[in-house]
Design a protein around this nucleic acid. Structure first.
Lengths: 246, 246
DNA sequence: GGGCTTGCTTGATACGCGTCAAAGCAGAAA
DNA sequence: TTTCTGCTTTGACGCGTATCAAGCAAGCCC
C-alpha cells in the first residue's frame, strides 16, 4: 500500500469491503482520469464517536464519503426537536443538501470512530466537465438520495410502528449484506432514541416493538445485537406497504 | 412574440409571472449560450386536469418544468396506499428522481389544465459541460429538492396535525407570493384527501383542523378558497417546530 | 466494592388521530 | 329544472402511540 491512502484509487484497491465502491467503481475511469480524481480527493479525516463532521449552517465546501464507521445526519427545529434524516455507512455520501445554499443543511455526527474522504465540491464539479461519466455519476447519486427520501416519506406518512421498524431493519440488513457483512446478525450502531427519531416514533415504542418481534420469534434482541431469525416474516409485514415496483 | 413559444428564452421574456424564472433566470447566460439552450428545450406539452405527465416505472428521458398549472407527484405502495410527495407550481421541476435508475420513481399528475416544458436530460447534461453555470444550476436544483425533502421529514416525523397544516398553508402562501400572487387569499388546487396524503393525515383531520383554524379566526375557509386572516398566528404555531436557522 | 450515570424495558394511563357513519353542498349531466 | 356524483363537514367511538413513571442492567469513576 502506498502513501496515497487518501485517494479513491488507492481505496478501490486497498479496501474492498468498507470502501467507496459505490462511489468510484461504477465510473469506469481510465488511468489518466483516475489520476485526476486522485489529485482532487483530500486526505481522509478521522472522527471519534460523537464528533460532528459538519453542522447545519456552516459553510459548505465539500461532500464527504464514509470510508469506515457510521454516521447519522439530522435536522433540528427551533424548540429542539430532532429529526434524524438518515444513517450512513461506508461508501455513502453526505452533504448533498449543502450545495443549494452553500450552507450545510443538517448536522452529521459520527456514531462510532469513523473515517471519511473529503471531496471538495467545486473541484469535483470542474472535473465533471472533463470526465462525463463522473458528472453523470454525481447526478445519479443526488437522484438516488431523492428516491431514498421519497421512500422515507412513504414510511413516515403511511406506515404503522411495526411496519416502520420492520422496514428499517430490513433496509439495514440489505445494506450490510451488500457490503459483505452478515445480513441477519448485526450490531445496531445507534440508540433506540435515534432509531425512533428516524422512524417518527418514541424510543419506548421502538423498544416495545422490538420486544414484540422477539416474542413472535422473528428475531433475537440482545441490547444492540440483533439477529433476524425469520426475516421472511418481516418482509411479509412490509410487503404491502413498501413502494410498488413497476 | 415569435413562434419559439417552446423555448426558455422566449418564456423568460414572455411570461414574467408564471414562467420558469427560477429555472432560467439565475443562470446569467449570454446570447449564444441561450441559443444553445433553446435548441435543446422541447416543445412544451399541454395536459388536461387529471392527466399523467409520467408514471412510476416508465422510462426516464426528460425532466419537466411547470410553465402553467399545477401538479402533484406521488408514490404508491403495493397495497394501494398513496403518498403525495409534493405539489408543484410554475417554475418548479419534476422528474429528478428518475435519473438514478433511468426509470421514473413516482407519478406526476396535473391537478388542473397545465403546460410543461420538456428538458431532455441527456442533452442538458451534455450542455452542462459547455456551460458551467448551467451544470451548477442543476446541482443546486437537485440539492434544493433534497433540502425540501428533509423539511418534509421533519414535518412528518415531529409535528402534530395543526402544526403540519399551518406549515403547509404558510409554505403555499410563500410560494404563491413569490410568483406575484396574493399571499393571503388563494385557491387550493388539491383535494382534502391529497393534502392529507402529503401531510400524513386523513382527510377528516385536514377538514377538522381547517374548521378549527376558522373558529379561532385565523383564516376563512370557503371550500377551496382560503383567506389567511391572521397569518402571524399560524407562523407562531410553526415557529417552534420549524427547522432552526443558523 | 459502592455509587453514579446512561440506556433500555415494561406497565399504566391519556390523548390525538383514525375509522365509521350520516348528512350537506356544489358542480356536472340529463 | 332534477338527479347524480364526488367532495366536504361533522359527530361518535376506538385504536395506536405518546406520556409518565418505575425498575433494571451495564459501564464508569471514585
Amino acid at each position: 500500500m502506498t502513501d496515497h491512502t487518501h485517494s479513491l484509487h488507492a481505496l478501490k484497491v486497498s479496501c474492498s469491503n468498507c470502501s467507496l465502491r459505490e462511489l468510484c467503481l461504477p465510473l469506469g475511469l481510465n488511468r489518466d482520469e483516475m489520476a485526476q480524481l486522485d489529485a482532487v480527493i483530500r486526505q481522509s479525516r478521522r472522527l471519534k464517536r460523537g464528533e460532528y463532521l459538519f453542522r447545519s449552517g456552516e459553510g459548505f465546501r465539500s461532500l464527504y464519503a464514509v470510508r469506515t464507521g457510521y454516521f447519522k445526519t439530522c435536522v433540528s427545529s427551533q424548540d429542539g426537536r430532532e429529526q434524524v434524516t438518515g444513517f450512513h455507512m461506508s461508501g455513502e455520501l453526505m452533504g448533498l443538501d449543502g450545495i443549494s445554499s452553500n450552507l450545510h443543511g443538517c448536522d452529521a455526527i459520527a456514531l462510532e470512530d469513523s473515517e471519511v474522504c473529503e471531496l471538495p465540491f467545486n473541484r469535483m464539479e470542474t472535473l465533471g466537465r472533463d470526465i462525463p461519466s463522473l458528472q453523470h455519476h454525481f447526478f445519479r447519486l443526488m437522484s438516488r438520495e431523492i428516491v431514498r427520501d421519497q421512500s422515507v416519506m412513504l414510511l413516515l406518512g403511511n406506515m404503522k410502528a411495526e411496519e416502520r421498524l420492520a422496514a428499517f431493519l430490513l433496509n439495514l440488513s440489505q445494506r450490510l449484506s451488500a457490503r459483505g457483512f452478515a445480513a441477519n446478525d448485526f450490531i445496531l450502531r445507534m440508540s433506540r432514541e435515534e432509531i425512533g427519531s428516524f422512524l417518527g416514533l418514541k424510543l419506548e415504542t421502538v423498544s416495545r416493538t422490538l420486544s414484540k418481534f422477539q416474542q413472535q420469534g422473528w428475531l433475537v434482541v440482545d441490547h444492540k445485537h440483533i439477529q433476524l431469525v425469520k426475516p421472511e416474516e418481516l418482509k411479509q409485514l412490509v410487503a404491502g406497504c413498501s413502494q410498488a415496483q413497476h
